[in-house]
Design a protein around this nucleic acid. Structure first.
Lengths: 144, 144
DNA sequence: ATTTTTGCAAACCTTTTGCATGGAA
DNA sequence: TTCCATGCAAAAGGTTTGCAAAAAT
């Protein structure tokens, strides 16, 4: 979980202007512990009368993705969701109940990728692993 | 690579009607060695004057996905592409140059998923691995 | 001052849906 | 003949873009 300052600092550090809309969106995003969609952000911004337009939301999200603070994931349903994350190579595990997302370090996926490359003759450039699961909290709640 | 008959047989076996639009789309899809988008299929259908509507294309693709003959993947760009595949659990390796797709068996990913589950306390439900690479043919062609 | 950023609205693209017609079983 | 499937056109989402106005440096 990142706080709003992390976003603002990253913007500043990368030479982007620290505008009010960006600060407000940083605040909104930082409040999310799970995944979120662009339109959820839009709805929240509207409810809280933050006065930021749709386009600005998409532009800010793209910016945060570029800065590596946010990642866009594709659910099996095809829906696009965003999650905040640390800016390093990693994978994501998503709770299918509450939507919470956790970063996962490599855990051997790279080795698997390398192995597949050897077997198939493909020259692996990159890989993505997505895990869908039930988080500890939701396991307790639902008695699984 | 599946041929058009495989699609037709699968439809028949599952009790779906063997209509002309479905046969034609099966033929179109079978011609694809790499990935393809719904709108590519639409364009091709239009060029070849197959007389199948957009809606029918989406409905047929959904059907083929349900039958496990086609899978929908999400590229990092967010674009949705389809690939033909064998109906069993597996992963995909996509050539970033020519778009060709190859099925990959497990190769240890399940073990990784289990390991992650143990470490994080999440109860893993499913996983997806996508590999982006350069296929042997394209390696030769480009002298990599 | 200068340049970036914003909001708005419209455009765009992909996918879905309603419904009358047509075709398979 | 009875449903299932199709085509069309419209609707529905989600995302991007053009541009003049506003804000940050």
């Amino acid at each position: 979980m990142l706080n709003a300052d992390a976003f603002v600092n990253a913007l500043d550090h990368a030479g982007y202007r620290l505008t009010e809309p960006r600060r407000r969106l940083a605040g909104l995003i930082a409040e999310h512990h799970g995944n979120f969609t662009a339109s959820e952000i839009e709805t929240e911004a509207k409810q809280q009368k933050l006065g930021v337009g749709r386009a600005t939301i998409f532009r800010a999200l793209e910016l945060f993705v570029d800065l590596g603070l946010v990642e866009r994931l594709d659910l099996p349903s095809g829906e696009h969701v965003y999650v905040t994350c640390q800016p390093s190579h990693h994978h994501h595990i998503l709770c299918v109940v509450c939507g919470k997302s956790t970063d996962v370090e490599d855990c051997g996926v790279s080795a698997v990728a390398r192995e597949v490359g050897r077997r198939t003759g493909y020259l692996i450039q990159s890989h993505r692993l997505q895990l869908f699961a039930i988080c500890p909290d939701c396991q307790r709640t639902r008695g699984n």
